[in-house]
């Protein structure tokens, strides 16, 4: 059933990609040209239009990995596993970019590249967990079923751990020194909200599109490996054929 649904979705893949492109181009236009600079932050507030959607998309990606992992452990569907793998790779990319853009935003605003803010630390740890997930998958390729199973377990543990990590880092920071700079989000006025919304939609569509492409890529890759394996086996068997 799920295969049929995915086949249906794949049919509209092009539209999702086109939608993402349109949203991102309009969003960039609105964000860089049409919208006014922020009263307090000036021009650098324009970084928000990429940074915030990137962070949201990264969290969405990890949620997809988590939900997909549970689904895989339940149904043992190769395609779902490929989707988890794809989402983790994309989550890694988006988390990394969110950290980089956040750092670039922090420099002119707070005059520092990095601050030990709970959200930043949690994101950095999310980055590490996703890196570990991807490393685990690259080091464990002999048995695909085991690879997927172990990766799913890791994803579930990490997802449950993430709120606890965030919470503990928050406690730890408030205990040590009250934050000298407020890292809470800027109060968003209506003029800033429109480009932010469009960019957000754009990035989510982009994520959906990239997820489809990457899932397809991993699925096809596995299929090709299997095909090569089958060819080799046939050669091996034809050389040692049974004679009745």
């Amino acid at each position: 059933m799920i295969h049929r649904i995915i086949k249906q979705i794949q049919r509209y893949k092009g539209w999702v990609g086109a939608g993402a492109a349109v949203c991102l181009l309009t969003g960039t236009y609105l964000g860089l040209i049409a919208s006014p600079p922020d009263y307090y932050q000036g021009e650098v507030v324009r970084i928000m239009y990429v940074h915030v959607p990137l962070a949201h998309t990264a969290l969405l990606a990890y949620t997809v990995v988590f939900a997909g992992s549970i689904w895989y452990l339940w149904k043992r569907d190769r395609l779902i596993d490929n989707m988890c793998h794809a989402a983790a790779g994309l989550g890694f990319l988006f988390t990394g970019l969110a950290l980089i853009t956040g750092s670039i935003w922090a420099k002119p605003t707070w005059n520092t590249w990095w601050t030990w803010d709970p959200r930043l630390v949690s994101f950095a740890i999310l980055f590490l967990i996703l890196a570990g997930y991807l490393m685990l998958r690259t080091f464990l390729t002999e048995d695909p079923d085991r690879e997927s199973r172990y990766a799913a377990v890791l994803a579930i543990v990490g997802f449950i751990d993430l709120p606890i990590i965030h919470f503990s880092v928050e406690w730890w920071r408030t205990l040590h020194q009250p934050l000298s700079i407020s890292t809470r989000g800027v109060s968003i006025s209506g003029e800033l909200l429109l480009p932010l919304t469009i960019m957000s939609i754009g990035f989510h569509l982009l994520f959906a599109y990239m997820l489809m492409v990457r899932t397809q890529l991993l699925y096809l890759d596995e299929l090709l490996q299997a095909k090569k394996g089958r060819l080799l086996t046939q050669m091996h068997l034809s050389r040692s054929q049974t004679s009745p």
């Binding site: 860089l32 970084i47 980089i100 670039i104 935003w105 002119p108 982009l206 890529l217």
Partner: peptide, 30 residues
């Protein structure tokens, strides 16, 4: 204001160029 366009530009470029390259190489590989 003395503007910091360098920061804005680098943030946008560092976002879109890696994503673009990544997506392109994926689509090509498919």
């Amino acid at each position: 204001l003395v503007s910091n366009y360098g920061f804005v530009a680098s943030a946008y470029l560092l976002t879109f160029i890696p994503i673009g390259v990544f997506l392109f190489s994926m689509s090509r590989k498919v």
